[in-house]
């Protein structure tokens, strides 16, 4: 155990001292702050609009019962935070995974590590734990920023339930980021040229994080016109469902495309927990998880697979086979 901690500690200090990592962290925090500011301004605009409408209605002599006051759900403002964790969080995972292997490979220090009385999987586990700590630190700082800004901007106090939901989102964010960490580590171990490993990781990142969700998004018939196709057609929700019922195959392909990406699963679950879609607002964590357990399971499996493989690769005897 002592040895695992030694490796984990070194791993964490190495990563925290890396400039590229720090730049990415700053980017991420910057985007988190901006996106929350945007969301809160957006909400304040809605409040102003509402108050104006109420005034107009009252001046006309009518009551304000016919329009709804915009409801404030502070967690909803975190929608873009999830978006940025999807994109930049994954890149952070890639960079950490890459660094954790590249620092040993080019310098032949892997031989030194392996010739110590340490079990091979302990080295792998040490690396995973060290970087998990770093990722939790990143998420912790992000959480701190979020909490601070929300209090500062709107004086929004999060309820216990909301804090629990937020923590759950962050746990899944950790699982999500670690998927990319594990994937890149494996590739970096397996590939003769580190550069190719990094390249493939970024290609996978592009495809999973950006392209697949983008395809799903652009194929959505409702997204063909700014503001929504069905809205432009003046169609009610019930009618829309009925019409779309005739296009099951198309919708199936679209959905299957999205299902193949861990990002989409992570996004669906997080959005539900944050109540980005109003139907989930006010629901308990249990009810949401009951509805979205499928997505949670996928994120968890995506998380486990590469890390488990990494430990297995470390344990097997072929780490150096590329050398000759």
């Amino acid at each position: 155990m002592q040895k695992i901690i030694t490796i984990a500690k070194k791993e964490a200090t190495d990563s925290l001292g890396d400039k590229l990592f720090l730049v990415l962290l700053i980017f991420l925090l910057m985007l988190v702050v901006i996106s929350i500011v945007v969301a809160s301004m957006d909400f304040q605009n809605k409040v102003v609009e509402y108050n104006q409408s109420v005034k107009i209605l009252e001046s006309l002599g009518g009551g304000a019962d016919s329009i709804y006051a915009p409801q404030f759900f502070p967690l909803k403002m975190l929608r873009s935070v999830v978006d940025y964790l999807e994109i930049l969080g994954a890149v952070i995972g890639i960079i950490l995974g890459y660094l954790s292997i590249s620092k040993e490979k080019g310098k032949n220090t892997l031989q030194l590590l392996l010739s110590r009385p340490v079990k091979r999987w302990e080295i792998g586990l040490g690396k995973i734990l060290g970087n998990s700590f770093v990722i939790w630190l990143v998420l912790g700082i992000a959480m701190f920023f979020i909490y601070g800004i929300m209090g500062f901007l709107g004086g929004a106090q999060l309820t216990g339930m909301e804090i629990m939901k937020l923590i759950l989102v962050f746990i899944f964010s950790y699982l999500y980021i670690m998927f990319f960490f594990g994937l890149t580590s494996i590739l970096a171990i397996k590939f003769k040229l580190l550069f190719n490993a990094l390249l493939i990781s970024f290609v996978v990142w592009l495809v999973i994080v950006l392209i697949i969700p983008q395809i799903g998004d652009t194929m959505d018939p409702d997204n063909q016109i700014p503001g929504g196709f069905f809205k432009a057609m003046n169609i009610a929700k019930s009618q829309e469902k009925q019409i779309m019922g005739n296009f099951k195959n198309y919708e199936f392909v679209r959905n299957a495309t999205e299902e193949s990406s861990i990002t989409k699963h992570y996004e669906r679950l997080s959005f539900a927990l944050l109540g980005v879609k109003d139907e989930y607002n006010g629901k308990t964590i249990f009810a949401i998880l009951n509805d979205k357990w499928w997505d949670g399971l996928w994120v968890f499996l995506f998380f486990l697979a590469p890390l488990f493989t990494e430990l297995l690769i470390f344990e097997k005897n072929n780490l150096l086979i590329n050398k000759e």
Binding site: R79, D83, E86, L210, T218, Q224
Partner: peptide, 12 residues
């Protein structure tokens, strides 16, 4: 100030 998904969608 658009969210990143909209940045990638040509229509939005």
């Amino acid at each position: 100030a658009l969210d990143p998904n909209s940045l990638l969608n040509p229509t939005s």
